[in-house]
Amino acid sequence: MWTYQHQHFIVHQLPVLRDNYIYIIQDRHSPVVCVVDPALAQPVIEACKQHNITPTHILNTHHHWDHTDGNKQLVETYQCAVVGNQADASRIPYIKQAITANSHFSLGHLNIQSLEVNGHTLGHIAFVIDDALFCGDTLFGAGCGRLFEGSFAQMWESLQKLAELDQQTKVYCAHEYTLVNLAFAQSVDADNNHLQQRIDDDKYKRLHNQPTIPSTIGLEVQTNPFLRPLDPTFCLAYSQTHQTKSQPLQVFTSIREARNNF
């Protein structure tokens, strides 16, 4: 477990399963404690005992089992309220507080913005709290989620929305996929000096059993191949070497399809 300090809250990062991360957000100014995407309940229970905190809410980004399977036991143990997208309410277990995407709400002293980020699934949302983004399976370290339900256009729109956040925003995604994503990134963006530096940095972190997450929006814009289509120069160079149109959506689509077969 790793802990990160923000001005108004603390984030505890729990590695579970093969490569998932669960996040526990501890409000500094109230008893509110939010668990983000609990794949499992027991690691959360143990972490909360260690820190002497009690979960009051669960924030679900989307309905997949490896983000929601802990809901039942946590609700039964703590009577916490499950918060999720109203559009996905029928698929999120034990949902109690259904919110609309692209809205603002407060839990304790946490001011939370929900963003609609369709693509990986329909109904997927992300949560922004001050300088922290909890984005589930939409944006990864140097990657993005597979398109199980949404379209390429929807995912590209979602990624653009995240890229517009403050560049210092911490990216708390739900999986440790960064090294394999970086290997793919190098295959399509080999001349990117920022990318090579990130590869060196993140390999060092993993070698020393440290997470590569959180990253930042700024780092992702510089090095994530699925955000590189924001750069017209990259789009033109990519289109010339991969026989595709140079429009950002077409470049993103080509890169996403290539990643599926990497």
Rank of each mutant, 00 (worst) to 15 (best):
A39V: 04
E149R: 06
A39P: 04
N192Y: 06
A81R: 06
D231K: 01
P232V: 02
Q168F: 00
A258E: 14
E176H: 07
L207N: 12
K161M: 08
D130V: 00
A142V: 00
H242N: 15
P15V: 05
R256Q: 13
R146G: 14
C173S: 15
L249N: 12
A185R: 09
A101Q: 11
D19I: 10
G143R: 02
C173H: 13
K170A: 15
V44G: 06
V128N: 09
Y21S: 10
F105T: 06
S246G: 13
K49M: 02
E46A: 15
D131I: 00
A39R: 11
K170H: 14
L115H: 11
F105M: 11
I125E: 03
R256S: 10
Q73P: 00
H109C: 10
H242I: 08
V180D: 14
N181Q: 05
I24S: 08
A163C: 03
T61Y: 06
L207Y: 07
H62V: 08
G136D: 02
L219D: 04
H104T: 03
H175M: 06
R198I: 02
G123W: 08
T223I: 05
Q73L: 09
G108H: 02
K170M: 11
F140P: 06
W65Y: 10
Y172N: 10
D231W: 00
V128Y: 03
Q240T: 08
F152V: 07
H63D: 00
L107Y: 01
F184I: 05
Q243N: 15
T54Q: 05
V117S: 10
I10W: 09
D202F: 15
T241L: 07
R206Y: 15
R198W: 05
V75K: 05
H29I: 00
H175R: 12
H104L: 11
V117A: 09
D200N: 09
T178I: 09
G119V: 00
G84L: 03
I125H: 04
V36C: 06
Y4T: 03
A163Q: 01
N60C: 14
H67E: 14
Y238E: 13
A101D: 07
T3D: 01
A101T: 03
W156L: 12
T169P: 10
A81N: 07
P211N: 08
C48K: 06
F152G: 11
R146T: 07
K72L: 15
T77H: 12
A87Y: 14
P229H: 07
K245C: 03
C173L: 04
L147S: 04
Y78W: 12
H175G: 05
T223W: 07
H29D: 06
H12T: 04
P93I: 12
F152Q: 14
A98M: 04
Q26C: 11
H57N: 07
S90H: 12
N85S: 14
A47R: 02
L139P: 03
Q86S: 13
Q97V: 15
V82R: 01
P225V: 04
T169I: 01
T216R: 09
G143L: 02
H29Q: 12
Y94H: 09
A41E: 07
N181K: 02
I95N: 02
R206H: 15
S239K: 06
T244E: 14
I53P: 02
T77Y: 05
A101H: 07
W2Q: 13
I45H: 00
H104S: 10
I112E: 05
L17P: 08
L249I: 10
H208M: 06
D37H: 03
H51T: 03
Q250K: 13
